[in-house]
Amino acid sequence: MIERHLMRLRARDTISAEEEAAIRSVITETREIGAHRTIVRAGTETTACTLLLDGLACRAKDMRDGQRQITELNVAGDFIDLHGFTLKRLDHSLLALTKVKVGVAPHDRVKELVEAFPHLGRVYWFSTNLDAAIHREWVLSLGRRTALGRLANLFCELQVRLGLVGLSDEGGYDLDLTQADLAECMGLTPVHVNRTLREMRERELLTFREGRVTIIDAAGLRKAAEFDPAYLYLERRAE
């Protein structure tokens, strides 16, 4: 059930069998939520963290006129709102972009976990720092990259992040998102995304059709994005 989460943690650190068992016991229930549903609304006081087990979710903020900015995509294995453990109230919403399966980790259980296993406290502290690094990269995209650079960087990032949990390979990955979803991630409009995807196809970098990303020219894509995976902190640093 939490295999992808463990894969993600173990890509960067050593998690003992005892720690694994403790992490498993933190999840008290699982829930299935339909596509395009709100998991937690902005402003809500939270008493549990949400672990994404399957599907795609995101953190998003909304403008009064209906415009939405997705601030990070979450893939299977990610805690979507680990920061809620210390913040207690979310300044953004959590949304299911596809049908998702989530695990519920009550804050009191998380507290017991990190007190019993200080190493896991550091592992999860790293995890929220990693989220902040991803946010910084998205700020760079939104502020400075061209439409093509933004989408290219996002596709590169997702290939790496999905790869850590066994959901992508060199050729590509499944990504059940619409052009409107991509537009909300990268501060573009759906038509602009559509045109940019066409440009990526014509430059033989990548195709995105029917929920499948096919990477044609990985080096070219990374160059177009100025993608440097350093911000994803992929080094393995076992304690």
Binding site: T178, Q179, P190, V191, N194, R198
Partner: peptide, 14 residues
């Protein structure tokens, strides 16, 4: 939302 301009046509399938 189909776009037609000097670059050609980009059809919106979604």
């Amino acid at each position: 939302m189909h776009v037609h301009n000097g670059f050609g046509s980009v059809l919106d399938e979604e």
